[in-house]
């Protein structure tokens, strides 16, 4: 093998130092994807994530425009900045996808999740659960002498916090919708 005689660094370095290669930080992003509401579109999006090894932390989908047959998929995902960019590009090139918005970088956004909590208990625990629910502005949507079902909306963090408080007070079950998100402002 002949040795290479390449003068490195004769020009400033490339691309590689656009981002610090050692800073492989994992970021969490919330993406809003507007798609045609056609058969199999959710399977396409989910298949993209599983097929290429991307993470899904939360995913919600519903039709938002009945006349235009558009659905909005809100997906919370984690990955390195490069992976997040790939996810957006991969979503963007799918035929039924109209728009991809990264609500985490596009500007301030509101994120809300709805959750239902079933908490069973008697005596002080029951009173405490009800008192905490008021603080968290949770509504009682079902009640028996031994249980409540609370309805709460808020950020995922708020719902996590509420779940932690309910756990010692008799939390039996919970159901969460996943995140819905919109950019702030007009």
């Amino acid at each position: 093998m002949s040795p290479l005689n390449i003068t490195k660094g004769s020009t400033s370095h490339s691309a590689y130092d656009l981002r610090d290669p050692n800073a492989e930080v994992i970021e969490t992003h919330t993406l809003a994807v507007l798609v045609d509401n056609e058969a199999g579109v959710l399977a396409r999006v989910i298949g993209l994530f599983s097929g290429r090894g991307y993470n899904i932390d939360s995913l919600t989908v519903a039709e938002v425009d009945h006349t235009g047959h558009r659905s909005r998929i809100t997906v919370v995902t984690t990955g390195t900045p490069q992976v997040i960019d790939q996810i957006k590009a991969q979503l963007g090139r799918m035929v039924p996808v109209h728009e991809v918005h990264d609500l985490t970088v596009d500007g301030p956004a509101v994120q809300r999740e709805l959750a239902l909590f079933k908490v069973a208990g008697k005596g002080d625990a029951r009173i405490e659960a009800l008192r905490l629910a008021e603080i968290f502005r949770a509504n009682v949507v079902d009640s028996t002498l031994e249980s409540f079902v609370f309805e709460i909306t808020g950020t995922p963090e708020k719902i996590d916090a509420f779940a932690e408080l309910m756990r010692p007070l008799g939390l039996r079950e919970m159901a969460r919708t996943g995140v819905a998100a919109l950019a702030r402002g007009a």
Binding site: S14, A15, L18, Q82, D85, Q86, A89, Q90, G92, R93
Partner: peptide, 13 residues
């Protein structure tokens, strides 16, 4: 022509 090819494997300037 495919945005998902850009910066997929090699970061470019």
């Amino acid at each position: 022509i495919d945005a998902s090819s850009l910066n997929k494997v090699i970061r470019v300037d």
